[in-house]
Simulated scan of single mutants.
Amino acid sequence: MSQEAAARITVRESLIDLVNQNRTFREAVEADNGLPVWIMEAGENDDARSMAANAATKLTYLETQNKQETARLTGLIGVSATTMELGQQLNQCRDDFKTAIANFRKLFGDSVEAIEQASEDLRDGLLGGLQIKHLHFVQCYRQLKLFPEPPKRVGFSWAASHSGTVRLTAEEAIEHFQKKYIASVAINDDIRLLECMPKTEVVIIKRILAPHLRANITWSNDIKALRDTDAALKKHYPAQINSPLPLFIQLTPGQPLPEFNRIRPFDPTARQERLQRSDACLVKINDNPHSRIYRYA
């Protein structure tokens, strides 16, 4: 069996597993209807639990969805221990599918043209044969936020006018642009400039992020003590995470959701208070207004 045939089989099998586990988890969340739930945008007559289950397990594009956006729905969802275990299995399926897709793409190479060819082959060939042409890969890959132990408090806050940065050498930045961005005049201009720089010179790639919600999490004193003594536990008990999807929290019948603030949808006219970021001292290297490369002043 060729490498390509083996990679195709792995993608197909991991996708089938993902779809099946996805359905099982969604049904389990909906069945936990005796546990509390809160969804930021749910109206009085909405089924908030079904809204959360559907948003967290949506693998394909919505008809009205922008191709650059992911399905979003902020909230807190109480689930049973059985559903929590199913969620952990679903996260593993998502990891397996992401790895299978990455291995499949490697067969085509790393150039922009090769990446586009691999995507076309996936959508119109392999996935098209499964009647899943409009699969949203980011939604398939992203991990559910699962908390087997309830936090003490969840404080939601908006991060607005926010930019993301990555620090790379000029050589690494060229590879980053070729792999992560669709070719354009501005991107090609940045790459040409980087090619003229010493390979080891450090640059900053900056991109503007849309307003997004963060969950600031407070844990009990016992868990805080554990985090202080074992750094590995910070991954399981984070202090802050992005929260585009509901947080799933294991509860027992009669147990309430953690204390939280009922934040409202983002208001672009409201003033956003924030501390000055370290990237405020970045300066552009390229005069092109659409350039993404900077260095520290």
Results as ranks from 00 to 15, higher is better:
E113S: 11
G128Q: 01
E4F: 10
H162A: 13
R12L: 06
I263Y: 07
N242K: 09
V166H: 08
I39C: 04
R23A: 12
R153F: 03
K199V: 00
K224R: 13
Q88V: 06
L127Q: 05
D110E: 13
Q65E: 14
G87E: 03
R123I: 11
D95N: 10
E175K: 14
T64L: 08
Y294R: 10
N45G: 07
N103Y: 07
V112A: 11
A270F: 14
E273P: 06
L282E: 02
N22G: 06
T57M: 00
V202R: 02
R142Y: 08
R214M: 13
A297Q: 11
C281H: 14
T165A: 04
E175M: 07
A102K: 12
L209G: 14
A31W: 02
G34Y: 00
K180C: 14
R72Q: 12
A28S: 08
I39R: 01
P268G: 09
R8F: 05
N221I: 15
L107Q: 05
G155T: 15
Q178C: 09
I182N: 06
P244C: 00
N20H: 11
A215E: 03
Y141R: 15
S119D: 15
G164K: 13
S278P: 04
T229W: 00
M40E: 09
I174K: 05
A7Q: 04
Y141I: 14
H162F: 15
I101F: 06
L193M: 15
Q272R: 13
L135T: 08
G34Q: 01
K234E: 00
N242T: 01
I249C: 00
L144E: 05
V11G: 01
T252L: 04
Q143M: 11
I187Q: 08
T60E: 13
T229A: 14
R105D: 05
F104N: 04
E273C: 09
H236S: 09
Y141T: 14
N216G: 10
L135W: 07
P268Q: 13
A231T: 10
A53C: 10
R142C: 11
R207E: 14
L86F: 01
L15A: 06
A56F: 01
L122P: 01
R153V: 02
A52V: 03
E273H: 10
I16R: 13
A231E: 14
K145D: 09
T64Q: 05
A53S: 09
R227M: 12
A270C: 12
L122N: 03
L168K: 05
I39P: 00
F108D: 02
Y294Q: 10
A186V: 06
F147W: 07
D279V: 06
K224I: 04
R192M: 13
N188M: 09
I16P: 07
D279A: 05
P253V: 01
K67A: 15
A5R: 11
M1S: 14
D46Q: 08
A31F: 02
V138C: 08
E175Q: 12
K98M: 14
P151T: 03
I101H: 03
E85Q: 04
I241D: 07
G78Y: 01
E172D: 13
A280W: 03
I249W: 02
D121R: 07
A31D: 00
I241T: 10
H136Y: 13
I208L: 15
Y61P: 02
R105E: 09
